[in-house]
Design a protein around this nucleic acid. Sequence first.
DNA 1: CGGCCCTTTGACGGACGTCAAATAGCGTGG
DNA 2: CCACGCTATTTGACGTCCGTCAAAGGGCCG
Lengths: 236, 236
Amino acid sequence: MVTCAVCPMFSLNLCAAVSKAHEASSRYPNLLPLSSSTHTIPARRKISYPRETSDFVTIICSGWAASSIMLPGGRRQILSFLMPGDLVSAAFLLEPMWGRSVEAITPVTCRKYRRSEFKTILFKYPPVLEKLSETWNEERAQADELAVDLGRRAANERIARLILRLADQAEKRSMKCGPTMEFPLRQQHIADATGLTPVHVSKVIGMLQHDGLIEISGRSLTIVNEAELRRVAEWH
Amino acid sequence: MVTCAVCPMFSLNLCAAVSKAHEASSRYPNLLPLSSSTHTIPARRKISYPRETSDFVTIICSGWAASSIMLPGGRRQILSFLMPGDLVSAAFLLEPMWGRSVEAITPVTCRKYRRSEFKTILFKYPPVLEKLSETWNEERAQADELAVDLGRRAANERIARLILRLADQAEKRSMKCGPTMEFPLRQQHIADATGLTPVHVSKVIGMLQHDGLIEISGRSLTIVNEAELRRVAEWH
DNA sequence: CGGCCCTTTGACGGACGTCAAATAGCGTGG
DNA sequence: CCACGCTATTTGACGTCCGTCAAAGGGCCG
């Protein structure tokens, strides 16, 4: 039974579409199965491993996670931060993803569906597919944006853009109202997402704070001067 | 009428699948239309513009092109090089893509389909859709790889990897056999693809040649010492 | 209080960018 | 065939952004 309907992130991503499709199908004799299981992962633990090709599709229900690729020499690149309602990579919904790690930043609860069941429903109900392709495009556009940032932008631009992106992401999920938001990232996370070192991240963030653009204290972040932050980030 | 069947790239990407679907459909009363037009673009000309939201889906039939995002200040990031058989972004097949330029490197011939007709066929024939999702995943994986390269690899690694990627891409299209291939890229292209400057690209390529890993002369490239090139690129 | 992370700070080094000038290709026209 | 003009590549000197290393604070929790 699908129980996502009680989830506050219900309308995001595919949850709603899948549930609806499932409901519709259950009026017919050949009821489609869609079983799910819920899991809790403590902070800093891996949700999935790079060599693992799981038969399950995972959706984040609460908490923050990071999806990354690891390189020899301990280097790693974070490709995206996941928040409630996010699929652990929509691009690899049909075939299992490979070569990337997903790691909990805060404690995370997530729900897992059988890939085969998910797929069946997907292909049976065109609206779900439309929604999926939309999500796909968003993810792809973000991947391209990331490449541009890493290839062509200076450190302060990259960090300013990351902050604005995260603020947007949180706002869409009603996890932020006003200029302040929860901000569980360590500077190591920011470094791995922006292609910098933690030391340099510390210096750049120090400057952004000194210049009165943002303020970070405890585990929360405030955008003090949004206009100026956007200007630095070349964000329009 | 679909005439792709004579194209040597027929079996790559979606061409074959779409043609087959179209054939199948033409046996039925409500014949699906799939009109296409062929175009020739001289080297260095734009194939599509960043602000343009075209109603057409474009496939490269011959020549090389580059898909890129432009930034203020003349900076640009090349996201992928397109060769015969490539869609101009599979990710944005359903909705038009936005914000990226596609530019011919060599003279290019391409074919354009109406997006609406393409879409109809796509959704009617599941095998086409499967093929599409496969292509999607490949593109996404490449986008992620690019981000890792730009974020976490040194200049010589990036260039070595670019060369190996292009060699692979050419080989798949039978545009390369043995260690030598056509190589129409200017160093400016390499710079824009790797997030470096043309000057630095020249130096790194000079080293790779001096060390006997590759050789570039005229508009062709030879991989002299593939094993060592792979080692430098951390390519497995 | 003490231990563990995380963050901050400073000195130093290196990879890559910038600028400028020289050189090499290459098509065009004489 | 040579002169030319353009663009691409090469080379060298120099600058800067960011990485590296190391040490010194801060929080947080036992």
